[in-house]
């Protein structure tokens, strides 16, 4: 297999008025062709920051401190704005949470899809409409000719997210980044949207990076899962292995806090403590303050990766 996306030792900080926030530190991850990889963590863990960095859409206050992001053959950190704009929407696409606000409220959804096609697909103008409607049909929107003329406020949240997916997939990208794509949608719609994303990536041999706080959701749809905590990647494993044999104490706590069809409310455990303040001096393991397995060795830098198998990596001195 060849890697579609490679992130190596990537570090990023935010310069703010109240100090420097070390949002990401030494993050490494790769996504193979056709693979669905989940990035899971609490809010504030840096998973969305990572997603935006891959797109090259980071905030103006963000500063890359080191590492590399390779997309196909392209060095995303070194590429100019023009090269990035050329890749975005064509080879690399993204969908967001709250799809209603993510669409232009005063432009017909069909026209918004055409904007992407016109820019990247090299089609004659008269073909645009046909392709836009086809894109809507592909995401199983009923009556796509009529929906082509709809404004976002006339559609439900789930329908808007389908339009977003249609837009993202219009040019058959190699990698789709889905940032909490089902947040704010009702449960049945969530499943429909996730099934759609999975089917699309299978059909088109497209890689997917699924950003979510919901380990259960990631467990259901991903091939591999990477767990993030406070800007660190703490564990990466194939999905069955991670769910059945979590090695990092944080992963285990996340699992315990994830509802399953069999769990009861009493059985759910919340994760003790809070994320550390990323503006302060931090210990090598940023989870140490919340960890019941903490030992003296944990405070020795650098914190190494431990291989439990060829595909299961954990960044902990005392893995489970």
């Amino acid at each position: 297999m060849t890697a579609q996306l490679t992130i190596e030792d990537f570090s990023l900080v935010f310069r703010t008025r109240h100090g420097t926030v070390r949002a990401l530190e030494d993050v490494s991850l790769s996504v193979e062709r056709g693979e669905i990889v989940g990035v899971v963590g609490e809010s504030g863990s840096g998973k969305s920051v990572l997603a935006y960095a891959v797109m090259g859409l980071q905030d103006a206050a963000a500063r890359v401190q080191g590492g590399r992001i390779l997309f196909g053959g392209l060095d995303m950190l070194g590429a100019g704005e023009q090269a990035l704009a050329d890749v975005r929407g064509r080879e690399l696409a993204m969908i967001f949470q709250s799809p209603r606000t993510a669409l232009n409220p005063i432009r017909k959804v069909g026209a918004q899809i055409e904007d992407i096609l016109r820019e990247h697909a090299n089609l004659p103008s008269r073909e645009l409409r046909k392709h836009a409607i086809a894109a809507l049909a592909r995401v199983r929107i009923p009556d796509p000719e009529r929906r082509y003329n709809a404004y976002p406020f006339e559609l439900s949240g789930g329908m808007c997210q389908r339009v977003m997916i249609a837009m993202a997939l219009a040019c058959s990208p190699f990698l789709l980044i889905a940032d909490e794509p089902t947040t704010g949608l009702d449960v049945t719609t969530q499943a429909v949207i996730m099934d759609l994303i999975r089917d699309m990536s299978r059909d088109q041999r497209m890689s997917t990076l699924l950003i979510t706080h919901d380990l259960g959701l990631a467990g259901e749809y991903c091939d591999r899962i990477a767990v993030m905590h406070a800007g660190h990647m703490v564990e990466i494993a194939p999905v069955e292995e991670l769910l059945s044999r979590p090695a990092h104490p944080y992963t285990r706590q996340l699992l315990a806090a994830t509802p399953t069809p069999r769990s009861t409310v009493e059985g759910l455990v919340s994760i003790p403590g809070q994320l550390p303040d990323l503006r302060r001096d931090l210990p090598p393991c940023r989870f140490s303050a919340r960890c019941e397995r903490h030992v003296a060795l944990c405070d020795e830098a650098p914190l190494p990766w431990t291989s439990l198998s060829a595909t299961h990596l954990v960044r902990c001195r005392v893995p489970l």
């Binding site: 859409l57 704009a85 975005r88 967001f96 709250s98 606000t101 993510a102 992407i116 820019e119």
Partner: peptide
Amino acid sequence: GSDFTRTARAGGLPRGK
């Protein structure tokens, strides 16, 4: 600063557009 402008950027639309 809105979400839909971010979507447009993520779609690689030209700056003028």
